[in-house]
Structure formats: C-alpha cells, structure tokens
C-alpha cells in the first residue's frame, strides 16, 4: 500500500509578518519555518495507517524552494515517513501549479492508495490544493476531516466538520484525498532515534518544470501586500464594574452604533 502525505512549509504561527520591499512577498529574514499545523495531522494519520498495515509505505511530498523546504520533509521522515519527495519550485507558486506538480509526481511514483493533506495552509489560507489534486488525479476527496477509519479494503469512513458544529459522516472509496482538520489525532514529536534514522532515508528531488508545470499554470497572482490598518487607540473605561459596564453599553449604542 502506498500512502502519500502532502505538506507545506509555512512560517510559525508566532511569526510577526513584515512585508518585503517588492510588496509581492513577505520579508523572510529571521522566520522560523515549520510544517503547516494541519499537515502535521496528515503526517500523523499517514504514519498511523502504515503502522496498522504492515508493508505499507509513506511518501512525504512537498513543493517549494529546495534550500528551505527540505527541512520539513526531514521532520516528516523523523515522524515515521519512509521516503521524501521534494519538488523544487519558485516561491509563491499558486495552488493550481502546486496541485498540478503534486499530481504529476504522485503519478510518476506509481500512484497512491490514499493521500493525506491538511485542510488549509495557514499562510495563503486558500484551502484549495487538496481538492485540485484530487481533480487532477480523477479521484474523490473529503476535506475538513476530524475522524478517519478504514472500514474495508480501500473503503473509509470519515467525519467532515461543517458550519455550526455539525458533522457529515461520509463513506468514501479509495483511492482518495483526505484533508485533515484539527481533532483528527495528536501528532507525535520526532524522537531522537527517529531524527537519526531520517538522515539515512531517501529524499528525492524533482523539478516542477520537468513535471509539466508551465508558466501558464500560474492562475492567481498576489500583489500590493499591505499590513492591517492601525487601530485607533483603545478607550479604557474607568470606575467600578457597574460604571464600566454602563459606559460600555452606552458607547456601543451611541458612539460605535453597533447595537
């Protein structure tokens, strides 16, 4: 059984974002890069599945500038993935190009019985690559998955989180793409022996361009980056609790006009 897990390297959530001089990217100086938090759930689920299915293999795959993103694959290998596949690309390639590159690489590696991803990357917040990848591979997908179990050979039951705390219980026949939400599992930490072993594991490098990704596959461009507008200084309300509360409700009604 071939299990693929797609991951993206993103700035740590503690990062204070600064805009680069070109206003088309962020200043990456001093940024701590991590595996996208939702992709960690995907890695964990892939490794758990391998552990439950002897003979299964986990391939961790990522797209990005190779000097930077190799680290995230090493982390996935240390968590238990067997092999890494790095697709070297420019910074800021869009979701269509990324999905096309992933689909081509997975096909070239002989295809997958199941593909795990994260439901969204916390940098561009697109929630798009998982579904686009499924489309290019002509296989079904479920996104925002917080519960996953194998019910038969190549048949899975999953729970998808939707609005208002509701959950859809879905049966899906593989091969398929499963996009993980928080709650699916608790990702393990890479152990020291895991880290040592990861150094000896295969990390293959491919080029996005040699996978058939063309310049015209860039469909969406991002320009004119700006920081959020400065807020007016906070109005601190004084006095005892009762008087603070009266002032607050009055201000919300008469000044802010939101009641």
């Amino acid at each position: 059984m071939k299990i693929f897990v797609c991951l993206k390297q993103v700035p740590d959530t503690e990062t204070k974002i600064k805009i680069a001089a070109d206003q088309r990217s962020i200043d990456t100086a001093g940024i701590k890069w991590v595996i996208n938090p939702y992709d960690e759930f995907a890695v964990e689920e892939a490794v758990k599945m391998k552990e439950a299915n002897p003979g299964a293999q986990v391939f961790a795959i990522t797209v990005g500038p190779k000097a930077r993103v190799a680290d995230s694959l090493r982390t996935a290998l240390a968590m238990g993935a067997d092999e890494g596949i790095l697709i070297n690309s420019a910074e800021n390639i869009d979701t269509f190009s990324t999905a096309k590159a992933l689909a081509a690489a997975i096909t070239q590696e002989g295809g997958a019985q199941i593909i795990f991803t994260g439901k969204v990357a916390i940098d561009d917040n697109s929630s798009a690559v998982s579904q686009m990848l499924a489309e290019f591979l002509k296989i079904p997908h479920v996104t925002v998955v917080s519960k996953f179990s194998k019910t038969a050979d190549s048949q899975f039951t999953v729970e998808r989180d939707v609005e208002g705390g509701s959950k859809e219980v879905i049966q899906i026949n593989g091969p398929c793409v499963i996009a993980a939400n928080k709650g699916l599992n608790m990702p393990r930490y890479a152990s020291l022996p895991g880290i040592m072993k990861a150094k000896k594991k295969v990390l293959k490098e491919l080029e996005a361009s040699s996978l058939g990704v063309l310049a015209t596959d860039q469909k969406v461009v991002l320009n004119s980056y700006t920081l959020p507008a400065d807020k007016a200084p906070v109005k601190m309300l004084s006095g005892d609790a009762s008087s603070q509360v009266t002032q607050l409700v009055q201000s919300l009604r008469d000044e802010a006009k939101v009641l």
């Binding site: 700035p11 962020i26 917040n125 991002l222 004119s224 980056y225 700006t226 920081l227 959020p228």
Partner: peptide, 8 residues
C-alpha cells in the same frame, strides 16, 4: 494572508 497578519 497569514490569517490577517497582512493583506494582498
């Protein structure tokens, strides 16, 4: 982007 830490 980055959940609102910047915009594009």
């Amino acid at each position: 982007l980055y959940s609102g830490k910047c915009f594009a």
